[in-house]
Structure formats: structure tokens, C-alpha cells
Computed example of a mutant assay.
Amino acid sequence: MAGAGIAGLTLALALAKFGAQIVVLERNSAISEYGAGLQISPNARHALNHLGLDQTIADCSFEPSGIDVYPDARQSPLLTLELGAAVRQRYGAPYVVMHRADLVETLYKTCRRFANIDIVFDAQHWEANSEGPALSINVQAAAQRRQGWAFALIGADGVHSHTRNNLLAGPPARYTGRTAWRALVPIAALQSHLAIDRTSMLLGPDFHLIAYPLHQRGQFNLALFINAPEPQTRSTPTPSLGRNTSQNPRLAAVMAAVADQWGAWPLYTVDTQKWFEGPIGLIGDAAHAMEPFQAQGAAMAIEDAAVLAPLLISQPDAATAFAQYQNARQPRVRQVMRTSHANGQIFHMHWPWTIGRDMAMKAQGPTGHFRRLDWLYGHKVAQSGQNM
């Protein structure tokens, strides 16, 4: 396994529960996760619960009661989309928010309890050579070189995947024309402007802002998405919203609270039909990095792991397992990618198109999003690798 992020650690844990021997290769010297907030929808939570993580995630996450939608500088929400108890009742699992690092740490600590999971840090370079079903892997980790044979190599190494680009000759990631600016600020700094029991979504021309409380950390997670022709870098000090800030007191309060503490994260996507070749395959962002406008990137990686693990265990060779996994996952993932892209277009609309958008959102009511997304949130991955 290449990559000790959400995709790699979830798959390692799922495989370990079947008794497989797993080696996870991680480029960094320790577990690290750049970023801030993460949304875990019911479809992902069901898969994590199957791994025995329900209570651990509950202890380090927060369940918002709804989403307040503020289009175009409105001072009161256009509507509040229900979450909380309504989600639990409809889908049998909660919709929660948490810090991304807390999920990675939870997965890592759980993996450490399994003697059949070996995590190799400082794995700066690896090569794989396959002859039929046989796969030899050479790893340069710190000052040591390791060599061995494996049933499969799974690239869970992210959007700029070495496995995809170099071992499978796949396409590079494509910049979307948008950059995410992320920050964490104390709840006290914004509690008079944003609800502390709900998610807030501010919509404007060419941008939108998502904010939700991480009560375990005493912070608001903020994610500001802006159209940007060229990728912004983490060294860029602050995002610019021009007149949008001065005309929107709530947005102005957020910008003032963060000041120059934003971190820029250019958004890239991956579009490839080829998720495997022989005993080498891809999961998560390495296979299908998507725009984050349905908050399903991590969820799709978690579902990938839940589908792929039992197939790798039950099939006679890795190529057969990967073929079945690809056939099972690609249609759903592509539907999520299309939904995410459409959301980005809708969120960033200009007047007068926003008039129709806002009327449609108001007309759907506080639970209309459930009917639209039942196919997504109501999805469960069975332990057999098939859909329930």
C-alpha cells in the first residue's frame, strides 16, 4: 500500500480484519494531514462503523443540526437544510463534521493495534515490477532498501499519485480553476456571526464559504472556495473577494477574524478510466480526485476501501479483484463527481441567475436535499464488497 492517509489506512484496517499481511509505505516521517475540517456523511459512516470505529469517531466529531444557507449577503438564512436527527432517522447513521487530522489519527492508532499491519515511514521511493500475477517491490526508506514480493500494490497516494503517474502511466491531475482557502479560528471570534450548532454556507458570485464548529477543538473550520484562473500557493497571504466583503457584514467578520492566517489549497481533479493494471491498482484521490462541493472526497475513498478489501481477499489474483472493484465503483464515483461539479457551478452563480437558484432552493424546503441525495447518503457497502 502506498500512502498512509484516509484511503490507505482505511483499506489497511479493512484488510487486516480479514487476516491479510499489509505493508503501508508513507513518504513522510510521521502521520501528518494538512488541512482542517472534514464531513463524514452516513454512507461513509456505515463503512467506518463496520470497522469498529463508531464510538471513537463520535468522541472526536460534532453532529450539526442543519445547514444555514446565506445567498448574496442575506442577513438571515434563505433556509436551513435539516441534518442531525433527521439524517439519523432516514439513513441510520449521523452526518458529522470533524478535523481531518482526528480521523487520520483514529485510523492510525487503530491500525497500530494489528500486528499484521506494518507502516514504513520515510519511504521516499518505490518501484514495482510484475510478471503475470507475481509482483516484486523495491522500497527506499530512509537509509535502508527493502525488497519483497506482494499479492498487490495499491496506490492510495493522493491526487498527484506516483502510482498512477509512473507505475500505471496514467494522466496527471488537472487544475479546476478554483482554490480553497482554509483556516481555523476560535469559536468565540465568530459565534455572534455564525451558528455554533449548525453549518453555515455563504454564497456569492465566483465564491462560497463553508463554516462549521469543531467543538472538541473550540474552533470554527472555514473553507473559502474562489474561482482562480491560476493555482494559488500556500505562500499567498490572503484571498481577495473585492466588493463582496464590504457588502456582506457576515463575510467581513469572517475575513477580519482570520486576517492573514488562511492557507491556500489549489483544487485538482483526476479523470482516468484506468484504475489498475495487473496487480497494481488505485483507490481514493489517486483514482478519482473530485471537486469538494458535495463533501464526498474522503467518503468515496472510505467506500473504495470497503469494496476492495473483501475482493482482494476472496479473488484468486489481484487483477481479478481490481477489475471487479473498478466495475463496481466507477459508475457511482462518476455520478458523485458530476454532482460535485454541478454544485460548484450553482454555488458561484451571478445575478440574475441567482434568482432562479434561490427560488428553487427555497421551494425544496428544509428536507428536499434528502430526496435529491438519497442515492448518495443511503448507500451502504456490505462486508462482501457488494452494495446493500
Score class of each variant (00 low, 15 high):
Ala4Leu: 11
Gly5Ala: 14
Ala7His: 06
Leu11Gly: 01
Leu13Glu: 02
Leu15Ala: 07
Leu15Asn: 03
Arg27Thr: 12
Ala30Pro: 04
Ile31Phe: 12
Glu33Asn: 08
Gly35Ser: 03
Arg45Cys: 09
Leu51Ala: 07
Ile57Cys: 01
Cys60Thr: 12
Val69Leu: 04
Val69Glu: 00
Pro71Trp: 04
Asp72Leu: 11
Asp72Tyr: 07
Gln75Leu: 13
Gln75Ala: 08
Pro77Ile: 07
Leu79Ile: 14
Ala86Asp: 08
Val87Leu: 01
Gln89Phe: 07
Arg90Gly: 01
Ala93Gly: 02
Pro94Arg: 06
Val97Ile: 09
Thr106Tyr: 10
Thr110Arg: 05
Cys111Leu: 14
Cys111Val: 06
Arg113Trp: 14
Ile117Gln: 02
Asp118Val: 06
Phe121His: 15
Gln124Ile: 06
Gln124Thr: 12
Gly132Glu: 05
Pro133His: 11
Ser136Cys: 12
Arg146Asn: 12
Arg146Ala: 14
Gln147Asn: 15
Gln147Ser: 14
Ala150Gly: 10
Phe151Asp: 14
Ala152His: 12
Leu153Phe: 12
Gly155Glu: 13
Gly158Ala: 10
Gly158Trp: 05
Val159Lys: 08
His160Tyr: 13
Ser161Lys: 15
Ala173Pro: 03
Trp181Gly: 00
Val185Ile: 05
Thr199His: 04
Gly204Thr: 07
Asp206Leu: 11
Asp206Gly: 01
Phe207Leu: 02
Ile210Thr: 02
Ala211Asp: 04
Tyr212Trp: 08
Ala223Gln: 08
Ala223Leu: 15
Ile226Phe: 09
Ala228Trp: 08
Ala228Ser: 12
Glu230Trp: 14
Pro231Trp: 07
Gln232Arg: 11
Thr233Trp: 10
Gly242Glu: 10
Val254Trp: 10
Ala259Glu: 11
Thr269Met: 06
Glu277His: 13
Ile280Tyr: 13
Ile280Pro: 07
Leu282His: 09
Ile283Cys: 05
Asp285Asn: 06
Ala289Glu: 05
Glu291Ser: 02
Gly297Asp: 02
Gly297His: 01
Ala298Lys: 00
Met300Phe: 01
Ile302Tyr: 02
Asp304Ser: 02
Asp304Gly: 00
Ile313Pro: 13
Gln315Ile: 14
Ala321Thr: 09
Ala321Pro: 11
Ala323His: 14
Gln326Met: 07
Asn327Trp: 15
Asn327Tyr: 06
Ala328Met: 06
Pro331Ser: 02
Arg334Pro: 05
Val336Arg: 00
Met337Gln: 09
Met337Ser: 06
Arg338Trp: 04
Ala342Ser: 08
His348Met: 10
Trp353Glu: 11
Met359Trp: 14
Met361His: 09
Pro366Trp: 05
His369Arg: 04
Arg371Gly: 12
Arg371Cys: 09
Gly378Tyr: 02
Ser384Val: 03
Ser384Ala: 04
